[in-house]
């Protein structure tokens, strides 16, 4: 049933796209139709896959470092009052700086290779992970901690066996957000300055008026981003089976 629904949604969107092309009569260098984009995709698919693999690597590494750093920071914040007092304002203030504005600086410092894009994705992922995991860590059921204290548990044991597991559903929410925004970080980095990746390919195609190829790259990116999101969602559900899900019977 889920598959049928997915196919129906995709088919409806493609049809809507084609109808808009027919009604507006837009030239193909402004809005190419789905067939034209499909042809461009087929012609260029080896290059598209090559660039997609680079963007995927950037997203994957960004997710890895962003989640790792985010988790460590959240644990430090949860356990150290000075860290909360001194780092929390810095963290919040850092979010006031648009990531897009940092991208040129990162490219300047880290170069045109994947390092600047990984840094970009890491930066954009970091905050949602810290915020959600920290929130989970601070909202541990106090009675669990009381019970653990009567069992002579050390603060480290309480962290490891109670607070961290209890915060995993919150962390999972943060990772889902991270999975959704990670491609933005990677692609913005590629727009600003790169020699490979889907974002670079889109800029390149745009510059040469290959709008059909630009759309093909965009769709490829969308498919990969959605796949990453749902893969992570399945993995997270599998890892946190005790998490209550009020919508699971839909």
């Amino acid at each position: 049933m889920r598959w049928v629904r997915g196919i129906v949604i995709v088919a409806a969107l493609l049809l809507l796209w084609q109808i808009i092309v027919w009604i507006t009569g837009a030239p193909h260098f402004i809005l190419p139709g789905p067939v034209r984009v499909a042809v461009a995709w087929w012609v260029h698919h080896p290059a598209l896959f090559h660039h997609a693999s680079i963007t995927l690597l950037e997203i994957g590494l960004g997710l890895f470092f962003g989640v790792l750093l985010g988790c460590l920071s959240a644990v430090v914040l949860a356990y150290s009052r000075p860290a909360r007092l001194w780092l929390m304002p810095v963290l919040v203030a850092s979010q006031a700086v648009p990531v897009f504005a940092i991208a040129p600086i990162l490219v300047l410092w880290l170069g045109y290779g994947i390092a600047s894009k990984v840094a970009m994705a890491t930066l954009i992922i970091y905050f949602p992970v810290v915020a959600s995991f920290f929130d989970g860590l601070r909202r541990t059921e106090p009675n669990w901690i009381d019970l653990a204290r009567t069992m002579q548990a050390s603060p480290w044991a309480i962290l490891r066996h109670i607070r961290i597991p209890a915060a995993l559903p919150s962390l999972a929410s943060g990772i889902r957000v991270a999975a959704a925004v990670a491609p933005i970080g990677a692609v913005v980095g590629e727009w600003v300055g790169a020699s490979a990746g889907l974002g670079y390919m889109m800029m390149h195609a745009n510059g040469r008026m290959q709008i059909d190829l630009m759309f093909a790259a965009l769709l490829t990116l969308a498919v990969f981003a959605i796949t990453i999101y749902f893969l992570l969602d399945v993995i997270l559900r599998h890892m946190i089976p005790w998490q209550p899900d009020a919508l699971s019977n839909d």
Partner: peptide
């Protein structure tokens, strides 16, 4: 120590 809530860890 035993409380009103069972305080079982759900995982």
């Amino acid at each position: 120590y035993m409380a009103q809530q069972d305080l079982l860890l759900p995982w």
